Simulated assay, not measured.
Amino acid sequence: MDTHRVLIADDHEDFRKGLAALLAATPSVEVVGSAADGAMAVALALDLQPDVVLMDLHMPRVNGIDATAQIVASSPHIGILVLTMMEDEESVFAAVRAGARGFLLKGARRAEITRAVQAVGAGEVIFGPGIADRVMAYFSGVRSRPVADAFPDLTERERVVLGLIAEGRENGEIARQLGLSVKTVRNHASNIFTKLQVAHRAQAIVKAREAGLG
C-alpha cells in the first residue's frame, strides 16, 4: 500500500497533536507537517507538497475555504480533506467549490479518517457518514434556473456528458451509453471542467446538480 504524506492544518494545538499521533500509528500515512492557521497551511503545502492536507475550516488569518482554494490553484494534485465541526450544507459545498475532495466531521473514528486520507490521496472523492446524506438532501431540495439556460458555453454533447457525470456515471459507462470511445468521453470531460472552471469531477457534479442536471 502506498504511503500518503499528510499535512495537518488546525488552530487547536492539542487537536493537531492528537491527530498526528493517531495518524503516526497508521503504516500507510506519514505526517510531514502541521499548521496553526490558513496562511501557514498554504505556505507549508506549497513547500512540502504533501499528498493530502487535513484542513479545518475555521482558522485565523486565512480560513480553511480560502486556504483550500489557494492550495488547489497552485498545486491541484494535492488532495484537500476537510476535517471540521462545521456540518452545514453551505460549508460542505463551499469546501467542494474551493477544491476539497473530502469532508469529515471531527469526532470521526480513526478508521474513518485513515480510510478517507487514503481515498483522497488516491484521487478519490469521499464524504463521511452523515455528510453524504446531507449532500443528497441538499440536492433533492435544489430549485434552480431551467436546465436549458445553464452552462451556455457547453456544446449539446458536452451538456449530455455533464448530465451523465452528474448522475454519478464513470467515463466507461458514459462511453458505452453514448456509443463513444472512453478517450472521447475523457476529452469531453476535460473540456467541460475547463469551461466550468472546476478542478475535478466532484466540483463539476456540484455545479451541474445545482443547475438542475443529473
Rank of each mutant, 00 (worst) to 15 (best):
V29A: 04
A69S: 15
V117E: 06
S75V: 11
V82M: 14
P50R: 01
T84L: 13
V117L: 09
G128A: 04
F93Q: 07
D37G: 04
Q70R: 13
A24Q: 07
G121S: 04
G123Q: 06
R110A: 14
P27E: 05
V147D: 04
D66A: 14
V147K: 10
P50N: 01
A94V: 10
R115W: 11
I71A: 03
D56L: 00
P27S: 05
V92R: 07
V29N: 03
Q49D: 12
I131H: 12
V135C: 06
V120G: 00
A98Y: 01
A35W: 00
P76D: 03
G121A: 02
M40W: 03
N63S: 11
S28T: 12
P50D: 01
A94H: 12
P76V: 02
E89G: 15
S140V: 12
A137S: 10
R145G: 08
F93M: 09
L57E: 02
M86W: 14
F139H: 07
A111H: 06
Q49P: 03
P129A: 11
A94I: 09
Y138K: 02
V142G: 03
Q118K: 15
K106G: 07
V53D: 01
P50F: 00
V92E: 09
D88V: 13
I71L: 04
P60I: 05
A95K: 05
V92T: 12
S144A: 09
G128C: 04
D66Y: 07
G102H: 06
G130H: 08
E30I: 02
R101D: 09
A41N: 00
L48F: 01
T84S: 15
A35H: 00
D47R: 09
A36I: 08
F127E: 04
G107L: 09
A98E: 03
V96K: 09
R143C: 07
A132P: 04
T84I: 13
A132K: 13
G130V: 10
V31Q: 05
T68Y: 03
R110P: 06
R134H: 11
A94T: 11
G123S: 06
D56G: 01
L104T: 08
H77N: 15
S91E: 13
R134E: 13
M86T: 15
A35I: 01
V82R: 10
L54K: 01
M55C: 12
R61L: 13
A95Y: 05
A111P: 01
A39C: 02
R134D: 09
Q49A: 11
D37N: 13
D133A: 14
R145V: 09
P60L: 02
D66C: 08
S74E: 14
H77I: 12
G128Q: 03
L57P: 02
D37R: 04
S28C: 05
T114G: 01
F139Y: 11
E124I: 09
V52I: 10
S75C: 14
R97L: 09
E124R: 15
D37T: 07
S74C: 10
R143W: 08
V120P: 00
R109V: 12
I131C: 11
A39N: 04
F103L: 12
Q118S: 15
D37C: 08
L81F: 13
A39G: 02
D133F: 08
V62G: 10
A111Y: 03
V32D: 00
L54Q: 01
S28M: 08
Q118P: 10
S34L: 07
R134G: 13
D51E: 11
